[in-house]
Amino acid sequence: MDFILIIKALILGLVEGLTEFAPVSSTGHMIIVDDMWLQSEEFLGKYGANTFKVVIQLGSILAVVVTFKDRFIDLLGFGKVRSKLSAGRTSRLKLSQVIVGLIPAGVFGVLFEDYIDEYLFSTETVLIGLVIGAIFMIIADKFRPKSPKIESVDQITYKQALTVGLIQCFSLWPGFSRSGSTISGGVLIGMSHRAAADFTFIMAVPIMAGASFLSLIKNLEYMTMDALPFFIVGFISAFVFALISIRFFLRLINKIKLVPFAIYRIILALIIYLIYI
């Protein structure tokens, strides 16, 4: 077994896990770290570098499922998650609302998948996405309602779910960030940062899981016994670090908002541009 290869698999899993659900763009970080340093196409070529990335993304997805397990059980009709609305009524987030939020990006993703894969997966385009996404996050924090009308994800309406889903389409540009776009969109229409983050994470599971499993099925030829140690290490690494990242982020987001993440993105883009471009 190649120990160096195992370490690199561990690092890619770490990058995926720490950045997948923070508004900093996991795709952007993966492209930057991989293209500029690890070169997975070279060291994982025989095992399928793209398949490896799908596998570690599944680790991040599992971390969300674990964190929101009660919520997902309720969405599937097996639990009783409830929250009180200001009017004294009770409500809960519905599976149909999540689906409404997923439709726009799903449709655009299918229509423009080939174009995105061919023209937008480069360091240069990621830097553009990082900066534009950061500006959008700053705008969201500056112009959001001072008193959020939606404190809990259970108060989200179908119209709001659709609006967030439409804004999520921006995240199809690598570097823009799925969570960055949806959390920003959510706070702009009156959600608290925590409610927007919860909805973002819940929406991420079906769309990411569906895309990952389809990609995995297409690349089953790479799931060999030789490849398993690297896939397992990457999967576990992504799961553990995503679990830590999600719980830390959810405790933090209502306190620091989006601007610090936006500043980080701009600084990162500037450093990468000065060093590598």
Rank of each mutant, 00 (worst) to 15 (best):
I132K: 01
L162T: 04
G185K: 08
F136H: 03
L130V: 08
R194Y: 08
A195H: 06
L188Y: 05
S171K: 07
I207E: 04
A134R: 01
E124P: 02
V187T: 11
E124D: 08
A195P: 08
A197P: 03
V164M: 12
R178Q: 04
I139L: 09
R194K: 14
E151F: 07
Y119P: 07
G190V: 13
D198I: 07
L130T: 05
A134F: 10
T200L: 12
R178N: 07
M191F: 15
M203N: 04
I167A: 05
I202Y: 05
I150E: 05
L172H: 13
F170N: 11
K142M: 08
A134S: 04
G175C: 10
D154G: 06
G190T: 09
A140L: 13
Q160K: 11
S192Y: 09
Y158W: 03
M203F: 08
E124A: 15
T182G: 03
A204I: 12
I150A: 12
K142P: 00
Q168G: 00
E124I: 13
T125F: 15
S192V: 08
K146S: 10
F121D: 08
T123M: 06
K149F: 01
I138M: 15
G180Q: 00
D198G: 03
Q168F: 00
L127R: 04
F143V: 11
A197G: 05
K146I: 14
L130R: 03
Y158V: 08
T163H: 00
A204S: 14
